[in-house]
Amino acid sequence: MEKFTTLTGVAAPLPLINVDTDMIIPKQFLKTIKRSGLGKNLFDEMRYLEDGSENPDFVLNKPAYRNAEILIAGENFGCGSSREHAPWALLDFGIRCIIAPSFADIFYNNCFKNGILPIVLPQEQVDELMREAEKGENARMTVDLENQEITTSEGKTFRFEIDSFKKHCLLEGLDDIALTMARIDSIAEYERKMALERPWV
């Protein structure tokens, strides 16, 4: 997993609530057996017209936001399915950070497994960043994970909270499985105990 330390980039505004995983990556693109290559179908139904051409009105098709690395969105972002194809598609497009008033649990968790930082801020602050993002490509933002701060191009800062373990894993680019494999003796001990206590499991 790629480390997340500090990111400076263009933020794209997506002022919709309840952006669901079917919107982020429709099911016809879940038929892959790989993790890569999903970026071209990110937000597919909003991003392309019937004839397959780009919808010029969709934010990520506008010249200012084509290289956006940050997404600002409404509440309950990522609701719906557990498909990790949603963060894979965002990452493949180049999005490394999403800022919203709230996220759906499974999606939120999936982001951290892929080096994406989801940031929860109060609605008023998200509204302020949304207005900032609407200024286009000159409105770049800096996200500093170590110091838990977002700084706008005008120098205004917003502090955010994050779970300390998740922060540590992102900063170091740690692989969960390797971490847990180091605890394998505890797992084996639990299994021995359970074989006696709940043998039917």
Binding site: S82, E84, N110, K113, D176, I177, T180, M181
Partner: peptide, 12 residues
């Protein structure tokens, strides 16, 4: 769970 966690559960 997501696919990364599927792998985590398979392994551990």
């Amino acid at each position: 769970i997501g696919t990364s966690e599927v792998e985590h559960v398979l392994a551990t």
